[in-house]
């Protein structure tokens, strides 16, 4: 019991409290900048920058990359990239205060780390693809969209959770 308590202790915030603070942050963000939060935009900028440095001509010829490349400004110089940097810092602070920082692979005891990593990669690819198609992820489209009652935000949110619940059965071994 003691060991279990140690490994399973819920040292996290009360979810309602966390949600309340998150809501205040969203209000503040909209109040100051007029826009919502986001996360995958920074990754998009990274990919664009990466491709632009490795294969500039290819990037310019591609209809998608070229929309984010301009002569005088790096695609990394966007609001969302700075915000994502902040997320990394903030999470590091919080994790540090609570002693959660260490290298590890978190997975269900029933599966191997390797399997976890393979599924993480798969999930990442799908999420990256989907986030680009829907123009935003759970934070950019769903959360910030819902805050201003955007129709697209609600549709995206319903689609994410709907399909996640629908397919959860097939992935159950990974988690429980």
């Amino acid at each position: 019991m003691d060991i279990k308590n140690q490994t399973n202790s819920h040292v996290y915030w009360n979810p309602y409290f966390g949600g309340f603070i998150l809501g205040i942050i969203i209000i503040f963000t909209f109040y100051v900048t007029g826009r919502g939060l986001g996360a995958s935009g920074a990754m998009k900028s990274s990919v664009v920058t990466l491709v632009d440095t490795v294969a500039p001509t290819h990037a310019e010829n591609n209809a998608y990359y070229s929309t984010f490349i301009s002569e005088d400004d790096s695609p990394m110089n966007t609001w969302l990239v700075y915000e994502a940097l902040g997320v990394l810092i903030g999470a590091f602070i919080s994790g540090g205060l609570n002693g959660r920082i260490r290298w590890r692979i978190q997975h269900s005891p029933k599966i191997t780390s390797q399997r976890r990593l393979v599924f993480a990669l798969l999930g990442g690819i799908l999420f990256g693809l989907g986030a680009q198609i829907a123009r935003g992820c759970t934070s950019g489209a769903a959360l910030s969209g819902m805050a201003v009652l955007s129709t697209g935000g609600f549709i995206t949110m319903l689609a994410i959770f709907g399909s996640a619940y629908a397919t959860a059965y097939f992935f159950r071994k990974n988690w429980i």
Binding site: M43, A134, A159, G162
Partner: peptide, 20 residues
């Protein structure tokens, strides 16, 4: 929005994270 959301949902269950 629908197709992207569906793909993201599968990715969410498979990977266990969202980008943020």
């Amino acid at each position: 929005a629908i197709i992207g959301g569906v793909i993201m949902g599968v990715g969410f269950v498979a990977g266990g994270f969202c980008p943020g």
